[in-house]
């Protein structure tokens, strides 16, 4: 297996070099060399919505959650998520979105982020819900509210916000938007 992989790698490298060489000879400046041909890559981590694996999965399930394809996640994790939700908030009936424990955990167990291509993109901005995730969105407060806040969002007031409402650096107004590193 290893030998095969090495062979493939050598072949890919030779092809790349050959292509590069011929490209140079033809003075083609736009030629794209695929440095990565012949390799296979396998999933070790995946995520979409923030903190889902962290909050809802027991240690034994974390690797599985990180490597289960999203279309299979609901069947694999919904019931465990529901048990975890009711463990975190035994009084849960519905949340501010009107979702039952079953409906809420069905939504969360399939870890994809829905993004509007035609309108506002936000995790929650007071009006729009789960239409994307902007840098400044207070996603943790949104999740705490939906887990602990009850039907109106007014339950457990000490648990529905972490009282950290903004990033520690100001975001940029232009690409790449994220602030410079510390």
């Amino acid at each position: 297996m290893k030998k095969y992989s090495t062979l493939l790698r050598s072949a890919a490298l030779m092809l790349s070099l050959a292509f590069l060489f011929s490209a140079c000879k033809k003075d083609t400046t736009t030629a794209t060399v695929n440095l990565f041909a012949g390799f296979t890559y396998q999933t070790e981590d995946q995520m979409a919505r923030p903190a889902i694996n962290t909050v809802f999965n027991a240690a034994a399930d974390k690797d599985a959650f990180n490597t289960t394809i999203p279309s299979a996640m609901g069947a694999a994790f919904q019931s465990k998520f529901q048990a975890k939700l009711l463990g975190l908030n035994p009084a849960y009936t519905t949340n501010a979105l009107g979702l039952s424990a079953n409906a809420f955990t069905t939504l969360l167990a399939t870890d994809v982020l829905t993004v509007s291509t035609t309108g506002t993109t936000t995790f929650f901005d007071g009006t729009n819900v789960l239409t994307g995730r902007a840098l400044g969105d207070d996603v943790i407060d949104t999740e705490l509210l939906l887990i602990f806040g009850g039907t109106t969002g007014a339950s457990n007031p000490g648990l529905t916000s972490d009282k950290v409402s903004a990033n520690d650096k100001t975001f940029l107004t232009t690409f790449p938007y994220l602030a410079t590193p510390w």
Partner: peptide
């Protein structure tokens, strides 16, 4: 390639095997 006004996205980190 959106046709319904939305897409679902997620990120994966994959290692060369």
């Amino acid at each position: 390639g959106a046709t319904t006004g939305k897409v679902n996205v997620w990120a994966e980190a994959k290692r060369k095997i």
